[in-house]
Structure formats: C-alpha cells, structure tokens
Design a protein around this nucleic acid. Structure first.
Length: 596
DNA sequence: ATAGGGTTAG
C-alpha cells in the first residue's frame, strides 16, 4: 500500500478537495485496503472531506472493514451505530459481515431490528442471514427465514437458492436441502454446486457424483468450484481411478489454472493413497499459496513422512508464505506421528508468532504428541491447564495413550473425566475393559461391562476395508465372518510375534512405530509390509495379484493398514478418520460405475 | 464500476 499511502498524504493535506471520480478518491481506495489501519486512514480522509454522514460512504467503509484480512466487525459496528436511520442496504452489509464473523448469531439479532423498524428484507438480506444460520448451525432460525423468504416471494431467487441449500446441509439436514433443490425448476450452476457440496460435506459422495453427472448433461457448464467438491468426494471414496479421471477432466477444461483446484487435487491424491501424484501436482504449480503448502505438508504428514513434512514447512516459510492454522495442524500431526516431541512443542509455541490462536484440534495434536511418546502425566497436565474446556475427544486421545503405555490408573481417572462429558461412547468402555483384562483384573472388567449394559451403551464396530482387484473386503471389529478371517489372523499373529521379537509391544503402540516411516525403521517396515501383503494375499488371491491398497499407499500407510487390521483383531476402536479414507468401493464395483 | 449479494479445496 505504499502508493495509496502517498496518495493519502495528498488527500489529507489541508484544503485538498476530494475529487470524487478520480483515482485519488478515498472511495476508490477503500476496496484496496489490506488492513484495518489502512481502512481507518481512508476513514480519516472521509471525515476530513465531510463525507462521514453519507450512508452510502459508510456502507463502503463497513464493507472495507469486513474485507480480508482486515476483518473487524467491532469497528464496523462503531460506524454502524453512528448512523441514526440505517436503511436495508446498511443492515444487509452488517449482516453479511456478522455472518462471516465469529459471531454469526449477531446477524440474526440485527435482523430483529430490521423487522422492528418496519424495513423490508430483500434479495440481499436472505443470503447473508442464511449464511449466518449455516455458520451458527441454527436450523430453527434458518427454517423461519426459509418461510419468510417464501412470503417475500424470494424462494426462486438465484442468490437465495444456494444459501438456503447450504444452510440445510451445513446444519446436517442434507435431505431438507435436497428437497429444496428438487423444487427449483431451473437451478443455476451455483445452486448445483451448493447441492454437490452439501452431499460431499455430509459424506454422501455417490449422490454428489450423481448430481455432477446431471450437471454435465444439463446445458450448464461446471465451474472450478464444482471441481473442488467433486475432488473432495473422490477423496471420500478413496478411489484413485476415479480421481485420475477427474484430473483429466479438469485439465481438459482448463480448471488446472486455479490454485484451489490444484490444492484439492493434492488433497485428493494424498487421501486416495498416491503421495507421488500429490507431489507431482504440487511441483507443477507455478503459484503456491498458504493452502497449497498446507496441503502438501498434510500429505507428507499423513503418509508418515514426518521429517519431509517438516522440511516442506521450513521451505514454505523461507519462500515467504505465511503458515496458518491448518499448516500447524499438519506439522503437529507430523511431529506426533514421527515421535518428534521437542520439535512438536517448539512448533506449537511458535504459533503465537504468527498470531494463530490454537484450536481444540491443535490441543488434540499436542495431547497425541505427548501421549504417544509416553509423556502421560505431561499430557494430563496439558489438558488440565487448557484455556478452554476439554472435549471428550481430547480425553479420549489421552485414554488411547494410556492404553498404549499400559497406565491403568491414569486411564481410570481419564475415563471419569470422559464420563462427566459423555458416557455413551462404546469405544471408551472397550479400551478400559481391555486394559483391565490385560492386567487380569476380571472383576473390574465385569463391573465395566455391567455399567455398559445399565447405561445401554451400544458398540459401533470399527470397519476397515481392503480392495483387491476391484473387490472390496470389509472387516468389522470383532467380526470373524470373512471367509479368510482365520488365515488373516494367523498371518497377523505371526507378524505380531515377529514384532515382539524385535522388541515391539503388540498393542496400539504398534501404530506409533509403524508410522515412523523413515531412516532405519523404514527397512523394518518394508519387511513387515511384505508380510502384510502376504496377509492380504490370503483373500482369495493368487500370488502376484496387484493389491491396490498395499501398492498405492506405500510404506507408512501400508503399516497404517496393518495397524488397523491388528487393532481390529485385538478388538480396538478404529479411528473414524480411517473409515473415511478407506471406504472406497462397494460390492466389488466402483460405486461410481453407474455414472462413468 | 459508482452503497450491498450466492457455491469454494488445505
């Protein structure tokens, strides 16, 4: 903003008239402000030229306050409060700001004043308010606004449609969203996008693809935003073939010019198990923003390449791109899964340098980092000292660590904390019960089982799936009905025995070691991966068959699968994240086979 | 262009 600062000096000099229609006008500079400081400088120029009572000028100022990255609804509110008779445009502008702020409910609160003042909501009002409801997960208010939109004859408005669909699906009622969509006679591409996104965000990738197909055969053209959701659905399915098909479609249609699309491609490839393709997309990118860098850091981290994730993170900083909260999630994940406790703590504390306030997810990574490494008491104190209330998930992370490291006493204490918040999670009982069983405390096991029964806790079994030659084999925790289940158990028993021989504990701690896919550990892991391949090979498969999961997921993820199978055999809880990543095909056939 | 809009990957 060096240029505008120069121009401002001119503007603020005494007796300088404001040329309203030239590039020197403060109004012209407002949209170019990149910080609240600059917006305030323009405000000073506006006051100097006596324009501060002009409602249209204040509207522009407020818009500038809500532009990234200078976001300040507090300042916007101060400006708003000085206007004696705000009109609907000013209200709409404030509502849009609040909808995108940390306090979306305030948009709805402000709307009450609109009605009290007898102002009429228009086609700008509903999109902002519905967005606020989506962000606040306020489906009740959203439904009322839906009714009001109908009353005002705005149901078929092109701007209202997508936000209405978005509101329902963000509130988790994707069926309601779908009903709205079906009533729209001529949905525009943005409306299609919002519905495709709705299915994707609610983990219904097949319906997302069905709608994408419908969009393709309509006379509308998909946009790059369509591709973002479609890629995200690919990632949900975990289907690399489908992902490659979409990649070709993207290149053919020129969508690969968009940084966001390339970022979504990186994410898709990583989640479908092909780190190589993810890296190749990243390397071809000419411009890489924070999101693109984060995607590659996360890709390396989730594939177990912790130190590569760290070196990418350092390279990112060197090239002058600012990390954000997601980058830090990636780097903390990398550290915890690579056992780099000191580095992880260092990065966690460096977040403040980037003015990033840690979220519950960052705290979760820290608990995982400390817990996996066996620093259980430290992890416990970490949770105790948090500035926010811990969630059951946070305690659950520590509970798994207690299980890995066999600390029954701490586990008992932790589960009490969990039960204070949520006692309906079957997995928690199972973990502690197994810990009691391992130390021969059968009375405690029985008590826990009785407690589960009394509280009517249902166990939701974890599920893993392995795809061999387009046939998906699903395994549920504690279920031995798969035809090759016994054979698999035998191979995995052998694997566990060998792990014991090299000093590993056949426990969830296996996950810790299995994910250290680097340096001297790598050779060991490759060896065990082969064993695992033999294990998979037992599934009706002659030797030499391509086993996709094993082939594509590479060392670390192989072992992640191994860990999953082993955890299944030992009756442990399987993390939901794994379900997402590995749920690809159904009944031996690509679930999208109908559409392609 | 001349006060304000919808869908968005990590």
């Amino acid at each position: 903003m060096a240029n505008s600062a120069l121009q401002l000096t001119h503007l603020c000099s005494p007796n300088s008239a404001i040329p309203h229609e030239t590039s020197l006008s403060p109004l012209y500079l407002l949209p170019r402000c990149s910080s609240l400081r600059e917006t305030k400088q323009i405000q000073a120029a506006i006051v100097k030229s006596q324009l501060q009572h002009d409602i249209s000028v204040v509207t522009k100022l407020i818009n500038s306050c809500t532009a990234n990255p200078s976001f300040s609804m507090d300042h916007a509110r101060r400006l708003f409060d000085r206007i004696p008779q705000p009109d609907i445009i000013l209200f709409n502008t404030m509502a849009r700001g609040y909808a995108r702020s940390h306090y979306p409910v305030r948009a709805v609160a402000l709307f009450v004043r609109v009605l009290d003042l007898g102002l009429h909501p228009d086609d700008y009002t509903f999109p902002s308010l519905l967005k606020a409801c989506a962000n606040a997960k306020a489906i009740g208010e959203g439904k009322q606004l839906h009714c009001l939109a109908i009353k005002n004859g705005l149901l078929l408005n092109v701007f209202v449609n997508p936000t209405l669909i978005n509101m329902y699906s963000e509130c988790g009622d994707v069926d309601a969203a779908s009903r709205v969509f079906d009533k729209i006679l001529e949905p525009c591409v943005v409306t299609y996008n919002s519905m495709i996104t709705g299915y994707t965000r609610n983990s219904r990738p097949n319906e997302a693809f069905a709608l994408f197909r419908e969009l393709q055969v309509s006379n509308l053209k998909p946009t790059y935003v369509t591709m973002l959701s479609v890629l995200s659905s690919c990632a949900l399915l975990g289907s690399l073939d489908l992902g490659k098909w979409i990649h070709e479609y993207i290149s053919k249609n020129g969508f690969d010019e968009y940084v966001k699309v390339n970022t979504a491609l990186i994410d898709m490839y990583a989640k479908c198990g092909s780190l190589d393709d993810a890296v190749s997309v990243f390397e071809k990118m000419r411009f890489r923003d924070t999101q693109a860098w984060s995607a590659i850091v996360v890709a390396y981290a989730t594939h177990g390449h912790g130190s590569k994730a760290i070196s990418m993170f350092e390279e990112m900083k060197r090239s002058g791109v600012q990390p954000d909260e997601i980058t830090f999630l990636g780097i903390l994940y990398a550290c915890s899964h690579t056992g780099l406790v000191d580095e992880g703590c260092k990065y966690f504390h460096s977040m403040v340098d980037y003015r990033i306030v840690p979220s519950i997810k960052h705290y979760g990574c820290m608990v995982d980092l400390l817990g996996r490494a066996g620093h259980l008491d430290e992890a416990f104190l970490f949770i105790k000292d948090l500035p926010i209330n811990p969630t059951p998930i946070l305690w659950r992370t520590l509970l798994s660590a207690c299980s890995s490291h066999g600390n029954v006493e701490l586990a008992k204490h932790v589960i009490e904390r969990i039960f204070e918040l949520d006692d309906s999670h079957g997995g928690d009982y199972v973990i502690l019960s197994n810990m009691f069983a391992r130390s021969g405390r059968w009375e405690d096991v029985n008590n826990l089982r009785k407690m589960m029964k009394d509280r009517r806790v249902v166990k939701v079994p974890g599920c893993s799936s392995v795809e061999v030659d387009n046939v998906v084999h699903e395994f549920f925790s504690g279920d031995g009905t798969h035809s090759e289940s016994r054979g698999l158990h035998r191979v995995l028993d052998d694997l566990v025995k060998e792990l014991k021989l090299v000093g590993y504990v056949p426990d969830t701690s296996l996950v810790v070691h299995a994910e250290m896919g680097e340096d001297e550990k790598e050779a060991t892991l490759r060896y065990h991966s082969e064993k695992l391949a033999i294990g998979f090979g037992l599934i009706n498969t002659p030797p030499g068959t391509t086993i996709r999961v094993v082939k594509n997921l590479r060392v670390c993820a192989d072992c992640h699968s191994a860990a999953k199978l082993i955890s299944m055999i030992f009756g442990r809880q399987i993390i939901l994240r794994d379900l997402q990543r590995f749920h690809h095909f159904k009944n031996g056939k690509c679930s999208c086979g109908d559409y392609w």
